[in-house]
């Protein structure tokens, strides 16, 4: 799965110690995982023209090597519905530390999951699946396995979650397509194994899952100290 382009992105991110979101999304897109339509806008006009093509609503996030946790500094806006608002956000975010551009992407909906990976000292690459969102560490409804995983592992991980019922569709909510989630998670676990010597951990949080897609809405790759 690893090709020159992915290795090149990782190499270029070494100085920061982690991979900026546009680059992280690119890695996952190359690896064949589903990410939203996005652009890295250098100016407000770029942002507006992107939104014109994909249509509103869109999400905007600050891109800065100095900001790892974007929502902690107010660097994420969702539900943007028109050009004026998008321009205003561009101006506001452009004043943030280390601003290198505005990340604009189509807004996706679905059940929020977390898909994660870390390289464990004793066990090597391990992967995590659970209920995502900002409360992930509070609810701590997650399951962990040694990577790579097989289909039966994904099934047993979902069975382990308290939120299993939400994933399977609860009180009229649309059930997550388990087949697509499985395929996505297995591929992610294989990618993690290939990246063992390069990364420390990965958070895909949230991954938006619906009846037809599992889309990585946010991605963070922490690189290994060299």
């Amino acid at each position: 799965m690893l090709n020159k382009e992915i290795l090149g992105i990782i190499k270029n991110s070494r100085k920061t110690g982690w991979v900026l979101e546009p680059d992280a999304k690119k890695i996952f897109r190359i690896a064949g995982l589903d990410v939203p339509e996005y652009t890295l806008a250098a100016g407000a006009d770029d942002a507006v023209s992107f939104a014109g093509k994909t249509g509103y609503p869109v999400v905007a996030k600050v891109v800065s090597p100095e900001i790892l946790h974007k929502s902690d500094v107010g660097g994420v806006e969702i539900g943007i519905r028109d050009d004026d608002r998008l321009k205003e956000i561009f101006n506001r975010f452009s004043k943030m530390d280390g601003f290198t551009g505005l990340f604009v992407e189509e807004q996706v909906e679905g059940t929020e999951l977390i898909v994660g990976a870390k390289i464990d000292k004793q066990f090597g690459p391990v992967v995590l699946l659970g209920i995502g969102g900002i409360g992930v560490e509070i609810y701590n409804d997650t399951a962990v396995r040694m990577a790579p995983v097989e289909k039966k592992d994904v099934k047993s991980m979902i069975d382990e979650l308290k939120a299993k019922k939400i994933i399977e569709g609860f009180r009229g909510s649309v059930p997550v397509n388990i087949e697509i989630l499985s395929r996505m998670f297995i591929k992610f676990s294989e990618l993690t194994v290939e990246l063992e010597n390069k990364i420390e951990s990965i958070d895909l949080n949230p991954v938006m899952c619906t009846g037809s897609r599992c889309i990585i809405a946010d991605a963070r790759i922490i690189l290994k100290h060299q």
Binding site: K118, F123, L128, G130, E137, V144, E200, S201
Partner: peptide
């Protein structure tokens, strides 16, 4: 202090216990 949610949730014991069950 850990930089990611995953590293924070999947601590040494959680990983150990999960993998024992997996296998």
């Amino acid at each position: 202090a850990v930089l990611s949610h995953t590293a924070s949730i999947a601590g040494d014991y959680t990983v150990f216990s999960s993998i024992m069950r997996q296998f």
